[in-house]
Structure formats: structure tokens, C-alpha cells
Write a protein that binds this DNA or RNA. Structure first.
Length: 778
DNA sequence: CAGTGAGCGAGCTTCCGCTTGACTT
């Protein structure tokens, strides 16, 4: 047994530190918090100054038992948890749960995991900072009060299993408000004019320059008028302006920026990024991945500098430190960086490598020189008009950090692409147009949040922590507030007018897809109902500044300025009054909207949230005995925007269109779109069929087409065992053995396999793992 | 996968922030 036991939060960290401390020290870990509030009766004695009742959760019991055993015989227990509010509390919980005396413990902290830093920490132990622990407990208690007082109101007034909380409810609010901005958005169209000019460059070569008109034209008449002017106009270079600009690298990654860039550059979900980063961390390849700091350790700065000088030369190195923008950051860890800068890649899965490279590049780039760019702006006059064309060009004079890394943006607007090189031009130089086009363009609504964009927004507001971003996103989906989905978008026509070099003006109408969205967070109707309800009754908690305000008070507690009880009193009692008032005085929420009357029957048409989701309802108001008719809303429809016509359409399906082979043929719309049902089988209706007007002949067509395709699919069936079939699939012939799909060797005719060979193939078959979809575990 | 939706009412749900494994296919 060691005389000295050191406890840190993470086992990977424990392994590293153990190497630095030598054999007199045993380093172990607590795996995060080891105690939490009891779930029964809030876990808080409100009347007794909000005193918390802590228990060791079931899954932490073995950790605590083990730690007790290790610390019992030790002379000194070094509490080396993180240097922030939560870390301080973990140390205190350890002291309490393990029943360690004041004499036996030493609290140490270090902000980087290096031998010097750790030995230095051991030389300078301190006691537990009880004010900081108080601040953490206040945070914990407040979150419990909010969550466990408000959630039950939602169960009673809206639906069971719902939840509310300081972080999640605001996250949902952001998504709901964005969706409403999109719904209310009115798109305006205008014309963007682009010209291609011919000119001769300094080498006497013919080159083309692209220039845009410096404003939009408001309609097609104006655009046409302008193009007519251009026919006989002279185009002169009016001015040339060259401006040097500098671009600076971005700071190294924090959790939030890593999630954003992995989402933009690698298309990883926030949870995926964290899972891969965890693996890299456990393998010792990167520093800790849950951090809000952009700070790098001195030793890391040295290593990065050395790597840059070696690899790219001294000119490229620019050692620098970055300041964290957010005042709410706790900075208990370094920024995310490689542990060894000389390794540009790692052994591991493709995903691990891609993420590692991103981290390596970002960290290296952060220590590199600014890029120097020369930006050229050329203004081109149109002789018989006041309009001006502008051409822009960029030349990189010195690439600096751009050699390894450029941060992406969320702008999806591909219209202002890379600005390339411009040829050398002179003032008053005459240009001849080759083609001038005026293209109708529509203003776009704000974009829906991606997971990573939501994390960015939450971080800006100071809401949530690096360790909770990914779980929060998963919670709001689990509760049914939000889902990730693909929206197909609608076709829209737009006009293009073009003036060609032979002075002809053409007009064309083209179509584009608008409103398509993939992988974005889309709110459910339930999110709208709950957000409106909470905004009405608990505006303070829903306020974007609530967390920031609470943080100020927690800081005050940590400074020893105010007592925990004062802060909680001030929050809780007005809040509790609101809770009780809401329970007693509000009606159940259903989001009901009365849309009007069915013109045929006069029945009332309404929509509301029902037990299994949003429904449209037809009610005969004159006959109280009659039961209303129901129809579920479609995936893309919303309670708050659905129209009377759309609601009435819902009742037109399912439609019985006739009989085929003595069985009825029914048309309906399911989760995967419109379908034909016949003899218990489902046949998808392709886009060219309208489910509301399809007739029996067309339905039979669809059924027969599917039967034919299925027949062609079958190459061979073994009569001895019909479970074995050779089929023609999307990627060529394959063997279907029961539920298993098996590749066939390509060097033989698919018909030539015997049953015995097939059984053998199926038994020895190892599925490809890389691409197979993960099963959902629940 | 696809349609459902009453009403009675036991016993349950829920928060945020630290950390990783232990389940099965």
C-alpha cells in the first residue's frame, strides 16, 4: 500500500501523472462526481436552508468502495481534481464520502499535465476552498429546483415525460424562435447582374474577367432595360485599387469550436466528435477534450514552434497566446491540442485520424504567422448609365498559417466563391463584354440550427458547459422537442436574362430547389407548445440572460461575498409562488386552432395536439352525439401554420380506388410517403403520381411494375430450400440466405452456384463492418 | 412503418455537470 494516494477525475489522466510521481505515489481516479442529490423529494430540505441530501448513486458505489480501500491505509490523500467549481466540489465530496480527516488530505491543482507543473503542485498544497464548494452546491441545488419543480407542471398541463431545465428549455426556445422566423420570412426577389469581359493582359494574352454590378436590380423590366443600355455601351476601367490585408489564424480548439469545425469539415455530429476525441485522449494522442480554454502550456508552445520552424521555416513561426472571450469560462484545462506536435497523423481508424489531423492543424496554425494578401478592386463604368461593375481579385503574397489550415464558416451561400487572380489592368482601359446576365435571386430566410451551430449559440450565451453540449442535444431530441431531419424543399422558377456578344437578349426560365435542408434541428409542435407555456409562466428562466445572471451570483458566493441561503431564498420563493399559481390556475394546453368550416358538410375543422401527436379534427357542431373524425398531421406540417385547405386534404386519404384481383386497392400516405395497399402489401407511389387523384388503372400499373421488378430480381431459387435465393440487387447479383445478404465471388456466373456452395458461403460470410449501420440500443 | 385518439387513474417520468464502462447484436 502506498503512503500517498492521489485522486484525479479521469483515469487517463491518472496514468499520465503516475509516471511523473514515482513509486511513493499511487494515482487513481474518481470518474467524475461520486455523489449527487437524492432523487426522492427533490433531494433538498428547503425548510432547512436548502440543505442538500447527498447519496452515492448506484453506478458509483464500486468506485467509492475501491477508493475507501485505497485511502484507508494511506498517510496522505492528495485531492487533485480540476481547478474549477465542479472540481473543487468533487474534492469535497471525496473528503466527505471517504471520511477523510482534514489532517490527512492535501488539495493540489495544476493547469497543465507536465512533470514540472505536477511536482510544483505537490510542493504547494492548499486546503479545500469551501466558498467555491458553496457556489457549486448552489448551482446544483438551483438546477434541481428548476428541473424538478417545472417538469411536473408540464406532465400535468401538457404531456407526461416532458422536461424543463435551465439549459435545455433555452436550447429548445432558440430552435423554436428560429423556426418561427423562417415561417414568417417573406422572400423578395431581385436581379443580380454579372458580366464577363474580354481583355488583353500585359503578356498580350486574351483573358476574361468576371465582374458583378454593385447593386441588385429590382425586377425583370429594370434588368432588361439595363441590358438594352449595355448593348451599345462602352466599358471603361474607372479605378484600380490594391489593398494589402492580413488574415490571422484562429485560436486552438475548445470543445465548442472543435464540434463546430468537425461538423463543417468532417460532417460529424456533436456526439460523434466527442466519442472520437475521447478515444484519442485515452490513447494519449491529444489533451483533454472537454475544455473552454484556448490557452496552451509553455511546453506546448515550445514544441509547436520547433515543429513549425523545422517543417516550414522560421518565417512561418509566430508564437502567440490567445485570450478566452467568454467571461464565464472556467479554464480548468488547456486548449485541445496534440500531445506530440511532431506527429501529423496517428494510427487508428479513419475517423480518428481525420479528427486528429484537424486538431493538429488548428493547433499548429495558431502558432503560425499571419497570411498577407493583396486585394484588388476594379471598378468598371458603363458609358450610358450610372451603374458600376466591380471585379475583385485576391493574391496571396505570403501564405503563413494558410499553409496548413483555414477555418470554415457557416455561410452556405456559395455565390461569393473564391476570388481568384485578376489580370493586370490600366485605368481608362476599354473592355469588351462577352456576356452579361441578369439572374433572378431570392432573399433567404435564416438557416435552421445544426447541432454545432446550436452549441456555438449556447456557448455565446454562456449556457451549458463543455461536458454537457452533446448530452443536451440528445436530451431535447429524446423528449420529442426536436428532431434531425431532411426536408425535401420545393421547386421554384427563376428568370435569367442574358445579353450575348452578338447583341441579342435572351430570356429563360429555370427551376431551382428551395427550402431543402439536411441534418438540421427542426422543432416538433410539442416544442412550440412547451416553449410558449414556459415563456408565459416562467419568463425569467427562459430569459437568455438568466444563466449569466446566476453565474454572477455564484461568483459572488465563491468570493465569500454572499451566503448561499440568501441567493437561493431570493430565487426560490418568488419562483415557487409562480409554480403553485401555474398548477392551480392554468388550463391544459393543446395548441388548438379552429381553422374554419368544411364547405361541403359545414363541420368545424380544427387542429390540436392529441395523445399520439398533432391531429386535424372534423366536428359536427349540430350533433353532439356524433364522434369527431380525426386525421394525423403529416411530418412537415405544423399546428401553427397549417391552413384550412391543407387540413381538409388530410381527410381525403386513405382512398379506396377500386378492386383488383378481387381485393380492394387503397391509396394512403405513410411515414415514407404515399403508397398503394393491395392484399396486405405496400407499393410506394413515385412522385409523378398524385395520391389524391390516382385511379384504379394507375394503381394497378404501380402494382404490376413492382411485381415485374421483383421477378427480374430473382435469378435462381433453390426448391430444396426456398430460404436461399440468388437475386439481382443494386450492386449486382447476391445471395440471400434467410435474412443474411451475402456477396458472391465475381468470377462465376451467378446461376452456376449450387445449394451446397451457397450454404457454405453463407456460413463463412463476415459482413463488412465499416459501413453497416449501427443498431439503436435503448 | 403505414390505420389509433374513451375513461378510469396506480405509479412512474424530470434537472445540470463531472466522468467512463457494461450491456447485446
Amino acid at each position: 500500500m502506498s503512503k500517498n494516494v492521489v485522486i484525479v477525475e479521469s483515469p487517463a489522466k491518472a496514468n499520465t501523472i503516475e509516471k511523473f510521481l514515482g513509486k511513493d505515489f499511487l494515482v487513481t481516479s474518481s470518474y467524475g462526481h461520486i455523489r449527487d442529490l437524492e432523487k426522492k423529494n427533490m433531494g433538498i430540505d428547503i425548510k432547512d436552508n436548502f440543505s442538500p441530501r447527498y447519496i452515492v448513486p448506484e453506478n458509483k458505489k464500486s468506485v467509492v468502495t475501491e477508493l475507501k480501500k485505497l485511502t484507508k491505509k494511506a498517510e496522505t490523500v492528495w485531492l487533485a481534481t480540476d481547478e474549477d467549481r465542479e472540481g473543487e466540489a468533487i474534492s469535497w465530496h471525496l473528503k466527505e464520502a471517504l471520511k477523510l480527516s482534514d489532517e490527512k488530505i492535501k488539495r493540489i491543482v495544476f493547469d497543465e499535465i507536465t512533470k514540472t507543473a505536477i511536482l510544483n503542485a505537490v510542493e504547494n498544497p492548499r486546503g479545500i476552498d469551501y466558498n467555491l464548494v458553496e457556489a457549486q452546491q448552489s448551482r446544483r441545488i438551483l438546477d434541481r429546483l428548476v428541473g424538478f419543480e417545472v417538469s411536473p407542471i408540464l406532465w400535468r398541463k401538457i404531456k407526461p415525460n416532458l422536461s424543463a431545465g435551465r439549459v435545455q428549455s433555452v436550447a429548445v426556445r432558440l430552435i423554436v424562435e428560429r423556426e418561427r422566423e423562417i415561417d414568417e420570412f417573406k422572400s423578395i426577389s431581385r436581379f443580380k447582374v454579372t458580366a464577363v469581359f474580354d481583355c488583353v493582359d500585359c503578356d498580350g494574352k486574351n483573358v476574361k474577367i468576371k465582374a458583378d454590378l454593385n447593386r441588385f436590380l429590382s425586377n425583370s423590366e429594370e434588368a432588361e432595360k439595363f441590358l438594352i443600355h449595355c448593348k451599345d455601351a462602352e466599358f471603361l476601367v474607372a479605378s484600380l485599387e490594391k489593398k494589402p490585408v492580413k488574415k490571422s489564424p484562429a485560436p486552438p480548439f475548445t470543445t465548442s469550436t472543435l464540434q463546430q469545425e468537425a461538423s463543417r469539415k468532417l460532417r460529424y455530429s456533436v456526439a460523434r466528435t466527442m466519442l472520437i476525441a475521447q478515444k484519442l485522449y485515452e490513447a494519449g494522442k491529444i489533451t483533454y477534450m472537454r475544455t473552454d480554454s484556448v490557452n496552451l502550456a509553455e511546453q506546448a508552445l515550445d514544441a509547436a514552434e520547433k515543429q513549425i520552424v523545422n517543417e516550414y521555416g522560421k518565417k512561418y513561426s509566430h508564437r502567440q497566446t490567445y485570450k478566452t472571450k467568454s467571461q464565464l469560462a472556467q479554464e480548468a484545462h488547456e486548449a485541445i491540442r496534440p500531445t506530440d506536435f511532431s506527429k501529423e497523423s496517428v494510427t487508428g481508424s479513419r475517423e480518428e485520424n481525420a479528427l486528429y489531423e484537424l486538431i493538429w492543424k488548428r493547433a499548429i496554425a495558431s502558432q503560425m504567422s499571419d497570411a498577407e494578401i493583396e486585394r484588388t478592386t476594379v471598378k468598371i463604368n458603363v458609358s450610358n448609365s450610372d451603374e458600376i461593375f466591380v471585379a475583385k481579385g485576391e493574391v496571396i503574397k505570403f501564405d503563413g498559417f494558410l499553409k496548413v489550415y483555414l477555418e470554415s464558416t457557416d455561410e452556405e451561400n456559395g455565390e461569393n466563391g473564391e476570388e481568384g487572380l485578376l489580370p493586370e489592368l490600366k485605368e481608362n482601359q476599354k473592355l469588351k463584354y462577352d456576356l452579361i446576365t441578369a439572374t433572378q435571386r431570392f432573399t433567404r430566410p435564416p438557416a435552421r440550427y445544426t447541432e454545432a451551430a446550436l452549441v456555438k449559440k449556447l456557448e455565446e450565451l454562456g449556457i451549458g458547459r463543455p461536458s454537457t453540449y452533446a448530452p443536451t442535444i440528445s436530451t431535447i431530441q429524446k423528449r420529442g422537442y426536436v428532431h434531425k431531419d431532411e426536408r425535401m424543399g420545393k421547386e421554384r422558377e427563376y428568370e435569367i436574362l442574358s445579353l450575348t456578344s452578338d447583341k441579342k437578349i435572351d430570356q429563360e426560365t429555370k427551376t431551382e430547389i428551395t427550402g431543402a435542408d439536411k441534418g438540421k434541428l427542426i422543432p416538433e409542435d410539442m416544442a412550440m407548445l412547451v416553449t410558449d407555456f414556459l415563456m408565459e409562466h416562467f419568463p425569467r428562466i427562459m430569459d437568455y440572460k438568466f444563466t449569466a445572471h446566476i453565474e454572477e451570483e455564484l461568483d459572488e458566493i465563491a468570493r465569500g461575498g454572499i451566503d448561499r441561503k440568501v441567493m437561493l431564498d431570493e430565487f426560490y420563493f418568488p419562483f415557487k409562488e409562480k409554480v403553485d399559481h401555474t398548477i392551480e390556475n392554468t388550463e391544459r394546453v393543446s395548441g388548438e386552432r379552429i381553422l374554419g368550416k368544411d364547405p361541403k358538410t359545414g363541420h368545424q375543422v380544427s387542429v390540436r395536439m392529441a395523445r399520439f401527436g398533432p391531429v386535424a379534427q372534423l366536428t359536427n357542431l349540430n350533433d353532439e352525439e356524433s364522434k369527431p373524425q380525426y386525421a394525423g398531421l403529416r411530418r412537415e406540417q405544423k399546428l401553427e401554420t397549417i391552413t384550412l385547405e391543407e387540413a381538409l386534404d388530410l381527410f381525403k386519404l386513405p382512398r379506396n380506388v377500386g378492386e383488383y384481383e378481387n381485393e380492394e386497392v387503397v391509396i394512403a400516405i405513410g411515414r415514407f410517403g404515399p403508397y398503394v395497399r393491395h392484399k396486405g402489401k405496400f407499393y410506394s407511389l413515385k412522385k409523378e403520381y398524385d395520391p389524391y387523384t390516382v385511379n384504379i388503372d394507375e394503381a394497378i400499373e404501380v402494382i404490376e411494375a413492382k411485381r415485374k421488378a421483383d421477378a427480374e430480381k430473382t435469378i435462381k431459387v433453390f426448391d430444396e430450400n426456398p430460404d436461399y435465393k440468388i437475386l439481382n440487387g443494386r450492386w449486382g447479383p447476391y445471395l440471400k440466405a434467410g435474412k443474411k445478404n451475402v456477396r458472391l465471388p465475381k468470377d462465376r456466373e451467378p446461376e452456376s452456384f449450387t445449394l451446397e456452395e451457397c450454404i457454405e458461403l453463407a456460413e463463412n460470410y463476415v459482413p463488412n463492418k465499416g459501413r453497416s449501420k449501427k443498431k439503436k440500443t435503448k
